[in-house]
Computed example of a mutant assay.
Amino acid sequence: MYGTPLAIFLPSLAGGGAERMMLNLAQGAVAAGVAVDLVVGQAAGPYLALVPPGCTLVDLGAARVLGALPGLVRYLRRRRPRALLAAMDHANMVALWARVLARVPTRVCVSVRSNLSQEAAHSPFLAGRWMPWLARAFYPRADAVIAVSQGVADDLDRLLGVGRARILVIPNPVVTPELAALATAPADHPWLQPGTAPVILAAGRLAPQKDYPTLIRAFAALSAGRDLRLIILGEGPERTALESLIQQLGLADRVSLPGFRDNPFAYMSRARLFVLSSAWEGLPGVLIQAMACGTPVVSTDCPSGPREVLADGRYGPLVPVGAVEALAVAMALTLEQPPEPERLKARAADYGLEPVTRRYLEVLGCGSLAPGCDPT
């Protein structure tokens, strides 16, 4: 006998891409008639206000994801969900361990959001560098291993050695029905008002993965002799270093770091160009969201995701990681010859909420049960 049909487990509701995508999935599942428990180690973070109506929030009261293990075991014994989906590598491990300790028949699926090899190679923490070993030891015990892109799946195949057929590829549910309306909402930045200079936009955590120094240097080269502005949305540990670089390059009046915004779409729809400068990704949701707003995009050809999203460059230029000059040239060309917005929107629709949610529910064992998802 099962209890709640579907549980989604996250460490917190911090303002990251994984958290946003899991909230989107919860929204899609509820819309499909599936009851959802959103189980979080700690109910804290800027996305707390975005928990979808009809979704039950379960707070385990743990500041660290490993500390959520006892609470998750108790939750599984009490609620006995039919399926548990975990997102983010440390949460994936805790979910698999919790099922063993709880001794419940819950189907546990793990979602791998980024290129694990790259994450481990760049991690400053011992636990992060150990993650490939932990994945090899425990991910094969999951009922399904879900990668967000073909590149992430290929990387997992090399790491896990379980066979490529054992790894499912389901993209993120990036484009929600509300996105178009949110894109028309007012933008609270003075550079995005009518009659101002063209704005180039980036969005994501201020962290080494996003390689914003390359973008800032490329913007410095591009903006010489041009009236342009650069806005980078997000917060993170690299803020001080980025602010110092902006000062050194004399860009303080042309580059803005306004922090995290819960509605980046209002910025995307008003930007002349969106740029992803990452050193590595899993599936860059912000790139897809910018396309859904009809905004031209330029991206690094990093592992993994941008090449798949942009179809080998058919929807926007791809440049080598860390290549300042190539990025500046691609930005200039795209500003001069932008693609048709409707073409970009059509491509972004491939990552829509409804079709992606349907695929997740099928893998989780709820596809044939919605609406209602009979728990017996």
Rank of each mutant, 00 (worst) to 15 (best):
L156S: 00
D157F: 01
R158A: 10
L159R: 05
L160G: 07
L160K: 08
G161H: 02
G161Y: 01
V162W: 01
V162Y: 00
G163M: 13
G163D: 11
R164S: 09
A165R: 13
I170G: 08
P171W: 07
N172K: 00
N172F: 00
P173D: 08
P173W: 04
P173M: 03
V175Y: 02
V175S: 05
T176L: 02
T176Q: 04
P177Q: 13
E178N: 07
E178I: 00
L179R: 07
L179C: 09
L179K: 08
A180Q: 11
A180C: 00
A181T: 10
L182E: 14
L182G: 07
L182N: 11
A183H: 00
A183R: 00
T184G: 07
A185L: 15
P186L: 03
A187Q: 14
D188S: 15
D188F: 13
P190K: 09
P190T: 10
W191N: 02
L192F: 14
Q193W: 03
Q193A: 15
Q193D: 03
P194S: 14
G195Q: 09
T196Y: 05
A197M: 08
V199T: 14
V199Y: 03
I200Y: 12
I200W: 12
L201F: 03
L201C: 08
L201V: 06
A202D: 07
A203H: 09
A203E: 09
A203D: 11
G204S: 02
G204Q: 01
G204V: 01
R205I: 09
R205Q: 11
L206S: 01
A207D: 15
A207E: 15
Q209L: 12
K210G: 06
D211P: 11
Y212T: 10
Y212V: 11
Y212A: 12
Y212R: 10
P213R: 00
L215M: 05
I216F: 02
I216S: 02
R217F: 01
A218R: 13
F219C: 10
F219W: 08
A221V: 10
L222H: 11
L222I: 11
L222T: 12
S223E: 14
L228V: 09
R229M: 01
R229F: 01
R229Q: 10
R229K: 13
L230F: 04
I231H: 06
I231F: 05
L233G: 04
L233E: 03
L233K: 03
E235L: 04
E235S: 12
E235P: 02
